[in-house]
């Protein structure tokens, strides 16, 4: 396993690479470019970087306007503010007219760490998923983030991508990235574990622990929450008969619900959601906070085992 890299850092690097190949790409930020890592793009292409100041609603609507001029705006700030504060602007001014704006929001989930619950958005996937026609992507590691950035630039229409602050394992290598197509990272027969974001690497580790207990767990990286890969979800739920979802997000409205929506009334199977249980986050070192909410590999393994 390579060194750990945060998905936000990979995002910043990928934007620079994309900017060299596509002069239609412009980037907006709301005074957080040093945290979302859009500062890399700002340095490389100052004439294509627009700071909106601490005004997230203004930023996403400026993105809407820029998109109508044939440009491809990538808007970034923290998930709490991009998906939260500017929600109605995203809904009415970007998604409703189907404008080609990419909303790439960092510092999602409790792995933000020290900044605490006010800055740990555990609702963004739910907020974005419920908007008609919105595409929602959660890359699992740095390599997948790079692929997702390029896929988003080629994709026509509004899309949300969730990024994280915490440096995390890089394990993705030669997996294809196609929006809407989940990747099976590990085959198994007893339980199908659907995960996204940082929880993919934790789930892979959890599967290794379960193997020692004689439990065979499949791990599927659902990098696209919407449109979800219903075929893959159905197939693996049927194969294993037991389903567990793992996300660094509220268990309400995110990956777990998206998977449940596919299966409900169609596939008879056990079902268990692992995530943030209707709580706000809190300050602490990121690994400690993740552990507080039961989102480390040993905890995930124990939770899966208990659910079987």
């Amino acid at each position: 396993m390579a060194d750990k890299i945060a998905t936000r850092a990979a995002y910043g690097d990928a934007l620079v690479e994309l900017g060299a190949k596509n002069d239609k790409v412009v980037v907006l930020d709301a005074d957080l470019s040093h945290a979302t890592m859009t500062m890399n793009f700002a340095k490389a292409y100052p004439d294509r970087f627009f700071n909106a100041g601490i005004a997230e609603a203004n930023m996403v609507d400026m993105g809407a306007g820029l998109s109508t001029m044939g440009l491809i705006p990538f808007c970034s700030t923290f998930a709490m503010f991009g998906a939260g504060r500017a929600y109605e602007q995203v809904r009415n001014t970007i998604a409703y007219p189907k404008f080609n704006v990419k909303l790439c929001m960092s510092h999602a989930g409790v792995s933000v760490g020290e900044d605490g619950g006010s800055h740990q958005c555990v609702e963004d996937l739910a907020l974005m998923r419920v908007i008609p026609g919105m595409t929602v992507i959660v890359p699992a590691d740095a390599n997948e983030t790079r692929k997702a950035v390029f896929a988003l630039a080629d994709f026509q229409g509004p899309a949300y991508m969730r990024l994280c602050r915490l440096a995390s394992p890089v394990f993705e290598d030669d997996q294809p990235f196609e929006i809407g197509k989940a990747n099976v990272l590990r085959e198994g027969t007893d339980v199908a574990v659907f995960a996204c974001g940082l929880m993919v690497s934790e789930s892979l580790e959890a599967a290794k622990l379960l193997e020692k207990d004689g439990i065979s767990a499949a791990v599927i990286n659902v990098h696209t929450i919407k449109p979800i890969d219903a075929t893959c979800v159905t197939e693996w739920a049927q194969k294993c008969g037991k389903v567990v979802t793992v996300e660094e997000h509220s268990v309400i409205g995110g990956l777990g619900d998206a998977v449940a929506d596919v299966l409900m009334g169609k596939v008879a199977c056990g079902f268990h959601k692992i995530g943030i249980n209707d709580q706000f986050g809190q300050s602490g070192k990121a690994p400690e906070v993740l552990a507080e909410y039961g989102l480390t590999a040993p905890q995930i393994a124990a939770s899966i085992k208990a659910s079987l």
Binding site: V26, D47, R48, F50, A57, N58, D61, M62, G63, A64, G65, L66, S67, T68, M69, G70, L71, P73, Q89, T93
Partner: peptide, 14 residues
């Protein structure tokens, strides 16, 4: 106004 800003900014950029 924000949408118009984006359009006017885009026009100038292009």
């Amino acid at each position: 106004v924000s949408i118009a800003d984006g359009m006017a900014l885009g026009a100038k950029h292009l």
